[in-house]
């Protein structure tokens, strides 16, 4: 994995977790394994991230019985979390659109690309 990939993935980890949780509550193991499949990074990183998001009030936790073994800690997205998610999704779209514009710049003139983003 190249350096730029690692940095990009670390940066959007929080956004991905919020996006997952916006579609339903989940527990850390499930979040971590879905992220690990898609984003390919250490599963352990999920816990510092979840603690940070909890202290920022983006997610809350509750315990629920699991079919196997002891109760599990579930995470639920809060209203603040949803607001943050839509902000970050907006930022992400703007950013990727700008990067796409630059990457594909050779096919289309730059100025055209720029005006279309501002429009």
């Amino acid at each position: 994995m190249s350096e730029i990939e690692i940095q990009l993935k670390k940066g959007v980890l929080g956004l991905c977790v919020l996006a997952l949780l916006s579609r339903g509550d989940s527990y850390a193991y499930e979040i971590a394994s879905r992220m690990a499949d898609a984003v390919d990074m250490g599963e352990g990183t999920i816990y510092p991230l979840m603690r940070r998001m909890q202290s920022e009030g983006l997610v809350t936790t509750y315990l629920e019985e699991s079919p196997s073994g002891p109760p599990r800690k579930y995470y639920r997205i809060t209203d603040t979390g949803r607001e943050r998610l839509s902000e970050q999704v907006g930022d992400w779209r703007t950013f990727t659109a700008a990067v796409n514009g630059l990457i594909l710049g050779s096919e289309a003139p730059m100025e055209e690309g720029e005006t279309s983003h501002e429009a």
């Binding site: 527990y27 850390a28 193991y29 499930e30 971590a32 394994s33 690990a36 250490g42 599963e43 352990g44 990183t45 816990y47 979840m50 196997s68 073994g69 002891p70 599990r72 800690k73």
Partner: peptide, 25 residues
């Protein structure tokens, strides 16, 4: 939190070594 992760990993049929390696240092 991490104990729970190992439990969930075991329920998933993964070995302790596998789960620890996936968790990182």
């Amino acid at each position: 939190d991490y104990e729970e992760h190992f439990d969930a990993g075991a329920a998933d049929g993964r070995s302790e070594e596998e789960v620890a390696a996936a968790l990182g240092n």
